[in-house]
Design a protein around this nucleic acid. Structure first.
Lengths: 163, 163
DNA sequence: GTCTATAATCCGATAGAC
DNA sequence: GTCTATCGGATTATAGAC
């Protein structure tokens, strides 16, 4: 709380005019992050499964790169949530995962994708995509667009029906 | 330190007969974990790239599942290492990544794999595999062998030359 | 709404008896 | 090698002046 106060430019006690306690502040940060994530998911219902999957891959990498700090907190501070707040956050996270899983399900049904278990593929793909944040730094050897293209190749081939 | 002492069954002060300070204890834990990881990497130099990759995927998931606590600490406590210790740990981690990247390079050279950038594919695959730890619990819907098989399908197709 | 001051608690680490 | 006791400092949160 002192570090946050210093960043904002006030004393620690003044923060308690804006949040009842540290737990609420942490929960609100995570909830806002995931709510904004859900609101920003591209609506691709009318497109083909491959296009929908590509759009989601591109969106996920872009969105998470643009909010590195929030993503970092959302992962590292999970264990500091109360049981009730943890359950709420997990529910939002599950709803995001459902967007991807639905695309995979539709792609399997249409014959575009071949995946044994869409839930496992969902978790695998999300972990892979989110991992970009742990090493990517702007100005490196490759641009984020180039990296996104390569991740898309891995995902596309990974779930392709003609693999 | 007090929590560790309680777990071991001694008072907090007694721990300092075994470690000079908390930083050294944390570093030793991470270093041991990664050293054991490197020592346990299967030697598959004489096998075909596809077999080598499959063996590494199976090894990675098995090894990390068997050491959930160490893996958790190795990720969550990274930011609490001094700069010098952080560099040492990153060097060990890089050496592990090199095992996978060499397999991918050899597979690309032999025509078995098609990957634009082996370094990116390495990081993507490792993030995907390590992610299993965040959700897998023994006794669930699928066994770890079944899950490993599905991750292998995703990896195999992802880097396949005939995708 | 912000400040200073402080309460209550927790932390890593040390000192010294045994 | 472990204990008790404690130091010095950090933490979250509150109280009360302005």
């Amino acid at each position: 709380m002192r570090a946050i106060a210093a960043e904002v430019g006030v004393q620690a006690g003044a923060l308690y005019n804006y949040t009842p306690d540290k737990q609420s502040l942490l929960f609100d940060l995570m909830q806002s992050h995931l709510t904004e994530l859900l609101a920003a998911v591209p609506d691709t219902r009318d497109a083909e499964p491959r296009t929908r999957l590509r759009k989601l891959v591109e969106f996920h990498i872009r969105f998470h790169d643009a909010r590195r700090e929030a993503v970092f907190i959302a992962y590292m501070e999970l264990r500091n949530l109360t049981d009730v707040n943890f359950a709420r956050i997990e529910e939002l996270r599950r709803r995001y995962e459902d967007h991807l899983e639905q695309i995979l399900r539709d792609g399997v049904a249409s014959g575009d994708f071949r995946v044994q278990d869409t839930k496992i593929a969902t978790l695998a793909i999300i972990a892979m995509l989110t991992g970009v944040n742990t090493w990517f730094r702007a100005g490196g050897r490759l641009s984020l667009d180039e990296i996104t293209g390569q991740y898309w190749d891995l995902v596309r081939n990974g779930v392709a029906a003609d693999g």
